[in-house]
Amino acid sequence: MQHGYWIRSKPVYHSLSWQHRAQAHVLVANGEAGRSIVRLLHQRLPDQPITVLYHPTQEADYSKSLVSLAGENLHVFKRESELWHRFEQILQQSVMGTRLYAAGNEYFLWQATTLAASHGVLSGDVMREQASSLARSVYCVHCKTISHRVTTNIAICTGCQRHLLVRDHFSRRLGAYMGLMIDAEEPGNVPEAEEVYP
């Protein structure tokens, strides 16, 4: 909570579950969130074709578990950009009724959503589960740089080096929280940062 009031732009995430009324299912995940896909694949599977796109990271690699569950429906990518390229191809070929699922850190979830939106998919059509870290991507309102993996309430902007207060105001389009210079009124007066988004 910030200044004692709740900010409604902060998204609420849920655990993924199969949408059984569908024509096809496309899942995208990275790193730690591979675990969410493993969990989903243990549930009763839908009748329609399933495609899983996964990008393992240094922190976590669930490829082995996923391959044993998803077999040839699983596509593992060394680079995240390759995953997005394949996702884009799938979006181009998909029909209405294709259900989209994303699991990953928050920035990943909104990258998937934004890419899907460029194909006319509405934000509400994509199911999202925030897995692993609560770390935030922070948009510097002053220099417009997005700094990633911020775990503290005050962070240094990787673009302009200002100390930013990480607000709860979230932009889905940018996949990031607003960062506002904390010592603008009194330069140099920067409170100690606390790790609040582990």
Binding site: S9, F170, S171, R172
Partner: peptide, 18 residues
């Protein structure tokens, strides 16, 4: 901030109103 808020729905846009 327009650059931050553009594309937001009504409730997201007014998120910070206490």
């Amino acid at each position: 901030s327009l650059a931050f808020d553009i594309g937001m729905s009504w409730h997201e846009w007014h998120g910070p109103v206490p």
